[in-house]
Simulated scan of single mutants.
Amino acid sequence: MSEPTPHNAAERAPQKRSEMQVRPTAPIVPEANVSGNALMCVIAIMAFLACLTYGAVSMVRATAASWQSQISREITIQIKPDDKLDMEAALRDARDLALTFTGTKDGQIVDRAATARLLEPWLGEGLDLDELPVPRLVIITIDERNPPDFAAMRQALTETIPQAFLDDHRTWVNRLVAMAETTAWIGTAVLVLVFTAMVLTVIFATRGALSGNRHIIEVLHFVGAEAGFVASEFQKHFLKISLKGSFAGGALAALVFAIAGYWQSSSLATPESDQATALFGTFSVGLSGYLGIAATMLIIALLTTLTARFTVMRTIFEIDRIRSDPARTDGLPSS
């Protein structure tokens, strides 16, 4: 076998240097490992819970606002039956009297057939209203921006028709507002708990990744790598994980609301859909709800990234403090 000539060795040297230049370098933080996949699943679950809570709160607020708007547009005059009272005449008089007040738009007398239908769920079909002391109703539509004087109207009705009672639904409106506020506070508390748990999880995951790569980080840091460079590497790693996890959880939550809205729209006029609509309103969160879910996903990704960066910077600061303490570095090899 002939030895390579200097000319051949000179030709091979650039090739070797080229191969060394294109050789890929391993990242400081592994792209995919068990802890990263587990953290991604945890972030996905928390993002799903956070987006689901946000959508539910938005849905309850919209439903309460719809109820409040519908109730505030109408008032009800209830007339109790009496042996000496001409019910039909009293209903007309109550309607005409209410319409004389400024702020009223229209009045409608609930006829006997409609009254019987209202009582069917509780008393069954085939009711004879003459045999039962069933009150009759007059529904008055009012101007929401310029409502009438309810106190004056109530006093006038009492003086004209003693059996009449005016219900302006203020009690129900106040209860709905209180319920909406309570639900919003509960939802906000759940979101805070979810974000807190996520921050703690990211802190532990970041410290675990630091422990596994601590010797590499120390070498890089002591030979001149800035803390910001090391933190940025971890930041990129956790940004990818958080984006994947938050997108998966947020997309699943949006899919849940979309399926629920489709089920409700496809099962209209059924007892199940009517009861669900009466209790929760429409399951559609609308464009603002989906934009809020997307914003929640971005907040989760940003919060995860900032938490990882802060944890890395704090850990490097602790390493520097230990190295600068002579009492702690006695007996350790010098760098």
Rank of each mutant, 00 (worst) to 15 (best):
E3F: 09
N8P: 03
N8K: 14
A10P: 07
A32N: 11
N33S: 09
S35W: 13
G36C: 00
G36S: 09
I43L: 07
A44Y: 06
C51P: 00
V57I: 09
S58M: 12
P81D: 04
D82G: 06
D86T: 04
M87H: 09
A90C: 04
R92W: 08
D93Q: 14
R95P: 00
V110F: 02
D111L: 11
L118I: 13
P121C: 05
D130Q: 15
T141A: 10
R145N: 14
P147N: 10
P147Q: 09
A156V: 01
A156P: 05
E159A: 13
H169N: 11
H169A: 10
T171H: 13
N174H: 11
V177N: 11
A180I: 10
A184D: 10
A184L: 10
G187Q: 06
G187D: 03
L191K: 00
T196V: 14
V199P: 00
V199G: 06
T206K: 01
G212D: 05
E218T: 11
V219E: 01
V219Y: 01
L220C: 01
A225P: 03
A231Q: 03
E233K: 12
F238W: 04
L239S: 13
K240E: 04
I241R: 12
A251P: 03
L252C: 08
L255A: 15
T277H: 12
G281R: 09
G286L: 12
S288N: 12
S288M: 12
I293N: 02
L298K: 00
L302G: 15
T307I: 03
T307N: 02
R309M: 07
T311R: 05
M313V: 13
E318T: 15
I319R: 10
S324Q: 08
P326D: 05
T329C: 08
G331S: 11
S334Q: 13
